[in-house]
Amino acid sequence: MRQRYLALLSVFASLPAMALTFQTRLESIEWTVEGDKFECRLTQPITDFGSGEFVRRAGEQAIFRLKAYNSMIGGGSATLLAAAAPWQPGRGDINLGSVRIGSGNVLFNTSQVQAGGLINGLMDGRSPVIRHATGDGRVSEVRLLPVKFHKAFGDFQGCVAKLLPQNFEQVKQSQIGFPGEGVELDPQAKAKLQVMLEFIKADPTVNHIELDGHSDNSGNRLTNRELSRRRALAVMDFFKANGIQESQITMRFHGERYPLAPNTNAANRAKNRRVAVRLERVAPTEKPVPQATASAGAAATS
């Protein structure tokens, strides 16, 4: 291992004179893992620069981001590399494409594919390198080192295993289908609602649910309105049975008025038999008055 460290140092010493490299000394390298049910972060601090971190949100794959205390790298694009380790001669660097350098604390976020390439490289002893060249020939590099990565990545995977199935952007809206002509929740509908319920219980700031029941146009308007009401009520009852207060739920029903697809065939009519569920964060002073109402046009038919 000592020979590897010495070889690594020799490579940095051989960099072009115009290159400015930011990295942490070998003996000071550390990876930290932080997270909760919503996001996990695997971070290596970079001395006198900032940090590089892998971030994985619930429901997504990991990305890599570079953070800086100050704007030490100019704007424009930079090359992202999984650089070969110096103690493995004959291996070239892997070019993972370019990243756009921005301003502020976070200089860039990679794609999920690029982050996957960096992780695979680190597992193989490679270093994530961000190389930025200016028009006058100056080169800046930011380098993370693979030292202690394997154990830290195992801890990171342990955090990832506890993430929720989806993040708020993914879970905040859902269409609960009733492909049959009834009003009962089928297993697929219950599975969707269970994911939403799990998120609500994990995030107390999500404190209101909007339900909008719909039907196809198979029956008359009064019948369709009643079907849409009973479907919305089935979803409300699911939430209530699992600990959500009725005061947190607003329920409306619209009959056939708002189809997702033209009611021209059986498949489209099945799509229109649904309850739209929307999760919201509502401040205490803004909370709507719970209600169970038909849409104005549907009500006019009664």
Rank of each mutant, 00 (worst) to 15 (best):
F38M: 10
F108Y: 12
G50D: 04
N109K: 10
L107E: 09
F22L: 10
R100A: 11
D48W: 00
I101Q: 04
A85N: 07
G97H: 01
R25C: 06
A58D: 08
S51V: 05
G35I: 06
R100N: 13
A84F: 02
A62I: 09
A58H: 04
D48I: 00
S111K: 09
S103V: 09
S77N: 11
N70G: 06
E53D: 09
A85E: 06
A78L: 05
A58P: 11
T32S: 15
Q23P: 06
A78S: 14
W31R: 06
I46P: 05
F22I: 04
T43E: 15
N105K: 14
V99I: 08
R25G: 11
E27T: 07
A85F: 04
Y69S: 13
G97W: 05
E60R: 15
G90R: 01
K67H: 11
G35C: 04
L96N: 04
R65T: 11
F38L: 13
L96K: 08
L80T: 07
A68R: 08
I101A: 02
T110I: 09
R41G: 07
G74N: 06
P86R: 09
E53M: 10
T24I: 03
S111R: 06
V106K: 14
T21F: 03
K67S: 15
G92M: 02
E30T: 03
G92P: 04
A83K: 10
N105M: 12
T110Y: 07
S28F: 02
D93P: 04
L96E: 09
Q44C: 01
V99K: 00
G52E: 03
S71W: 07
T32F: 10
G102S: 08
Q44W: 03
C40V: 11
W87A: 11
V55N: 06
N105W: 10
Q23C: 15
A68H: 04
S77E: 12
V55M: 05
S103F: 10
E30F: 01
Q88P: 00
V99P: 03
W87E: 11
T32L: 12
L107A: 11
W87N: 09
K67G: 12
F49W: 06
S98T: 14
R41H: 12
G75D: 00
T21H: 01
A84E: 00
T110C: 10
E27P: 03
F49I: 04
T21S: 11
G74D: 07
E53W: 01
E27R: 09
F49K: 00
E39R: 14
R100T: 14
V33D: 05
E53A: 13
K67E: 15
A78G: 08
G35A: 08
L26V: 11
G92Y: 03
I46F: 10
T79Y: 00
A83V: 03
L42S: 04
V106P: 14
N95P: 06
S28W: 00
Y69F: 13
I101R: 01
K37W: 02
N105A: 14
T79G: 01
